[in-house]
Simulated assay, not measured.
Amino acid sequence: MVEQMVTIQNRAGIHARPSAMLVQTAKDFKSNIYLEKGNDRINGKSIMGILTLGASYGTEIKVITEGEDEQAALEAMVKLFDQKFEEE
């Protein structure tokens, strides 16, 4: 299991488009992927779960991956946050 903290840097936060990008990326990996905000942990392959996090600009999220391709999965997920979901 590997994990990394990320901060939402795009002004609109995590809405439908970034959620879809996260799910689309997560589904490319065999590993389990979770996003954690406070005490809430959701499946990173569930668009509804991601939307229910209510993650806005400046929110810190922990990305957790677990499985045979966990490192590559973590890097791909973190890259989306770092690129601000290609919105800016």
Rank of each mutant, 00 (worst) to 15 (best):
M1V: 11
Q4V: 04
Q4F: 01
V6A: 11
T7P: 04
I8L: 10
Q9L: 14
A12I: 13
G13V: 13
I14D: 01
I14F: 10
I14C: 02
H15F: 09
H15V: 10
A16E: 06
P18T: 07
A20G: 15
A20T: 15
M21Y: 13
M21W: 14
L22C: 05
V23Y: 10
V23P: 11
Q24I: 08
Q24W: 09
A26G: 13
A26N: 05
K27V: 06
D28C: 12
D28L: 14
F29A: 00
F29D: 03
F29G: 04
N32L: 09
N32I: 04
N32G: 06
N32C: 00
N32H: 11
I33M: 05
Y34E: 03
L35R: 06
L35N: 02
E36I: 10
K37D: 02
K37C: 01
K37I: 06
G38M: 07
G38D: 06
N39W: 00
D40L: 09
D40Q: 12
R41G: 00
N43Q: 05
N43R: 02
G44M: 02
G44K: 03
S46T: 08
S46I: 10
I47C: 04
I47Y: 09
I47V: 15
M48N: 12
M48Q: 11
G49L: 04
G49H: 12
I50R: 03
I50G: 02
I50S: 02
I50F: 02
L51I: 15
L51G: 03
T52R: 15
L53P: 02
L53I: 12
L53V: 12
G54N: 09
A55T: 04
S56E: 08
Y57C: 11
Y57Q: 15
Y57L: 13
G58M: 12
T59C: 13
T59W: 07
E60N: 15
E60L: 09
E60G: 07
I61N: 07
K62C: 08
K62G: 02
I64W: 09
T65I: 12
T65Y: 13
T65S: 13
E66I: 09
E66R: 12
E66K: 14
G67T: 10
G67P: 13
E68S: 15
D69T: 14
Q71R: 13
A73T: 08
A73M: 08
L74Q: 04
L74M: 10
L74E: 04
E75Q: 14
E75W: 03
A76D: 02
A76K: 07
A76G: 07
M77A: 05
V78L: 06
V78S: 10
V78K: 05
K79V: 05
F81C: 01
F81M: 06
D82I: 04
D82L: 12
K84I: 02
K84G: 10
K84C: 04
